[in-house]
Amino acid sequence: MDMKKEKTTSSPQKKKSQAQLILIRFTKNKLAVIGLIVLVALMLTSLTAPLWLDYSKVTHQSVRESFQTPNAEHWFGTDQFGRDLFARVIYGGRISLFAGLVTIGIAFLLGIILGGAAGFFGGAVDTVIMRFTDILMSVPGILLSISIVAALGQGLFKMLIALSVSLIPRQARTVRSAVITMRGQEFVEAARTYGCSNFGILFRYIIPNVLGPLIVGVMMGLGGVILQIASLGYLGIGIAPPTPEWGTIISENQANIMYHMYLGIIPGLFIMIAVLSLNFVGDGLRDALDPKMKN
């Protein structure tokens, strides 16, 4: 994004800045705007939850109150232990949404470093890094994550590592091909002639220029990560049980879904709405950043 701002200062004769143009194009896409609103609302409610929703409600058990269908007191009903599903889903969002962000953030950074080095230096560095991504991509991402979780054990931090490892190869490859197309451009040559270091060229001139498509890729990837976190939770190898997370909530209610459908449908809908909104925002951002891509 910074690159876009720099451009504006260098060409003040333009009426609207690049950032403004992107914003205008983005807001024209109704689905993307709706997606963004829903996403921000979901994140805000779960982020501010401790301010208005007592955490004790998440774990409070009361057999007398078990299996209540959604009502005024328990908006989403209660599970077999009489725990409030609304509180669990809202607090669950804290993990499902933000763990996804951290995971993709780690993969994004490592992907830029590995892919940037591979694309920029080429030769042996490139070969080693690319063969390494080949190896990581030879099994489906979720199998790799599962094996890593098997080795490290359960826990939020361990799950973040396991998930980001399976995301790095694709990220690195995207960065690499973007860097290769940029490497030969005149402005890179220019930077080199006045003595800019390799490191400087890569991070000050090349990476900012390929950041747009990379961010779009991250937005698109985030939906997939949220689904993977939920899947690991469902398989019982994600977050350890007492902490709520959307996937674990579904899995702990699985046995009762037949007669108490709301227990399965509601958390699933939350996952679906979050991922759908992310995809809309990603689509909108892609079209806004690169109008040529739109068809």
Binding site: L227, S231, Q254, G268, L276
Partner: peptide, 9 residues
């Protein structure tokens, strides 16, 4: 956009 396990259920 829906998780596969949830759709399955």
């Amino acid at each position: 956009s829906a998780p596969a396990f949830w759709l399955g259920m």
